[in-house]
Deep mutational scan, measured.
Amino acid sequence: KTVHVDGVEYRFNNPEEADKFVKRLVKEKNGNVEVRGDTYHVE
């Protein structure tokens, strides 16, 4: 899984860790998540 945040790319081998990371980011930023294939885009 890959997570894109503000143009920075984070790669996770463990999908659960990627999910936790995304949830935390969305809370912090009050942002939205767009999923494209295996990539999460957080804005």
Score class of each variant (00 low, 15 high):
Y40D: 10
F12R: 00
N30M: 09
F21D: 03
K29H: 14
G7R: 00
E28Y: 10
K20H: 11
K23A: 13
T39H: 13
R36Y: 10
K27M: 11
G7P: 00
N30W: 12
V22Q: 03
Y40G: 05
G31A: 14
T2D: 01
V3E: 01
D38S: 03
V5M: 02
K20G: 07
N30K: 08
A18D: 01
R11V: 12
V35Y: 11
F12G: 02
P15N: 08
H41D: 10
F12Q: 01
H4A: 05
V42Q: 07
E17G: 00
D19R: 08
T2L: 08
D6G: 07
Y40M: 08
H4E: 10
G37L: 09
E28K: 05
V5Q: 00
K27H: 09
D38A: 02
V22A: 04
H41V: 11
R11F: 14
D6M: 05
K27S: 11
H41Y: 15
E17S: 02
F21S: 01
G37W: 14
V22S: 02
E43I: 15
R24K: 14
N30P: 06
H4C: 15
F21W: 03
V42I: 12
K20R: 12
V35Q: 07
K1M: 14
H4G: 02
F12W: 01
E34I: 15
R24S: 13
N14V: 02
G31P: 09
E9P: 04
V26M: 12
E28L: 08
Y10K: 00
R36G: 08
V8G: 01
V22N: 06
N14W: 02
G31K: 06
G31T: 10
N32F: 12
K1G: 04
L25K: 05
R36M: 10
E17L: 01
G37Q: 07
K1R: 11
N13P: 11
K1P: 12
E34W: 11
V33A: 05
N14D: 13
V8N: 03
N30F: 09
R11Y: 14
Y10E: 01
R24I: 11
D38C: 08
E16Q: 07
K23R: 07
D6E: 03
K23G: 07
E16A: 08
G37S: 06
K1N: 10
E16L: 04
N14I: 03
D38F: 02
Y40S: 09
G31V: 15
N14Y: 02
P15S: 12
K20A: 15
N14G: 02
E34H: 11
D38W: 02
E43M: 14
P15H: 10
A18G: 00
E34V: 13
V3S: 00
V5I: 10
R11S: 08
E17M: 03
E34M: 12
L25N: 03
G7T: 00
N13F: 07
N13C: 13
V8P: 00
F12H: 02
G37E: 10
N13A: 12
D38I: 03
V22E: 05
T39M: 07
R11M: 06
V8S: 03
V3C: 14
Y10S: 00
K23V: 08
T39K: 07
V26C: 15
R11E: 06
E9A: 07
R24L: 14
E34C: 15
V8I: 09
F21P: 01
K20V: 09
Y40A: 09
K27N: 10
F12K: 01
T39Y: 07
V5S: 01
L25S: 03
V3M: 02
V35G: 06
K29C: 15
E34Y: 13
L25Q: 04
K27C: 15
A18V: 03
N14C: 11
G7K: 00
L25Y: 08
R24A: 14
V5P: 00
L25V: 09
K23S: 12
R24G: 13
V3L: 04
G31N: 08
N32D: 05
V8D: 02
V26T: 08
D19W: 15
N14A: 02
V8A: 02
N30L: 10
V3A: 00
L25F: 07
K27V: 05
A18L: 09
A18R: 04
L25E: 06
A18Y: 10
R24M: 13
E34Q: 09
Y40H: 06
T39S: 13
F12P: 01
N13M: 09
E16V: 04
N32G: 07
H4K: 12
V3I: 09
D38E: 09
V33E: 07
R11I: 11
V8R: 06
N30A: 07
G7Q: 01
E34F: 13
